[in-house]
Each structure stands twice: as structure tokens, then as C-alpha cells.
């Protein structure tokens, strides 16, 4: 599944339209956590992170782990600085009005799996 298909399937809001070339990026795994220390330690490269954490560091950590995308759950919307940093880093950001649990469940049903870090 690529990012465009994921956004379409889950009716996600796109926060980084500046990154159309990322649409075809294949997602390799899923991860859900609000603790960025945990994301740093266990998320897999190329994956998508589902989180309620909107601090700027979420992009720094995602870049460090080399994540493909971040989905902000429960309608949490980051500030512009977060979006701008994500565009610089080439990390696609999405929003959803669904909870982390429901988003993860839907991605799992679509065949995406987590990793054992």
C-alpha cells in the first residue's frame, strides 16, 4: 500500500500537499505511540506512525527513524512550524478524526503490520 492509497482508504486529511512525489511511497510497517522516546527506540524505517503527539519533535524523531508518514489521530492538528519542518524533511503528514485504535485497526485490516523492535 502506498501513501496515496492509504489516504484514500482512510479518508485522511493531507497536511503536506507540497509533497506530491511522496504519494507513491510504499509503506512498510505501522507503529502507534505518543511517547517519542518509544518511537525512537522501536519504530521501523519506512513505516507510518499514528500518534496524538503534535510537538515539533515528532517530525525530528520521524526523520531520525526514517518514517514515511505520520497520521495525527483524534483531529489533533500540529502548528504550521511542524508542517513546514515535515515538508523540509520529506515526511508526509495526515490528519484523521478517528482514534489511534481505530486507525491502527483499519490499517491492519488493509494488510499493514507492525514490527517487533
Amino acid at each position: 500500500m502506498n501513501l496515496a492509497a492509504m489516504a484514500d482508504e482512510l479518508s485522511l486529511g493531507k497536511l503536506t500537499p507540497e509533497l506530491p512525489d511522496r504519494d507513491g511511497t510504499e509503506i512498510t510497517a505501522g507503529y502507534a505511540s505518543d511517547l517519542l522516546s518509544d518511537v525512537l527506540a522501536h519504530a521501523a524505517p519506512g513505516g507510518v506512525l499514528i500518534t496524538a503527539q503534535v510537538h515539533l519533535n515528532v517530525v525530528a524523531v520521524a526523520a531520525h527513524v526514517d518514517l514515511a508518514a505520520i497520521i495525527f489521530s483524534s483531529d489533533r492538528t500540529p502548528e504550521d512550524a511542524v508542517r513546514e519542518r515535515a515538508v523540509e524533511e520529506g515526511i508526509a503528514l495526515f490528519t484523521s478524526d478517528e482514534t489511534t485504535f481505530d486507525i491502527a485497526g483499519r490499517l491492519y485490516a488493509l494488510g499493514l503490520r507492525g514490527t517487533h523492535g
Binding site: L35, S37, V39, L40, H55, N57, V61, H64
Partner: peptide
């Protein structure tokens, strides 16, 4: 500490 600290929540010290 592993809970409620800058490091635990934000991963990298801003």
C-alpha cells in the same frame, strides 16, 4: 525518568 519527562515524551531534548 521514563515517565512524564522531556526525554520520555519528546524523545530528543528540544
Amino acid at each position: 525518568r521514563p515517565s512524564f519527562s522531556v526525554q520520555s515524551q519528546l524523545g530528543i531534548f528540544p
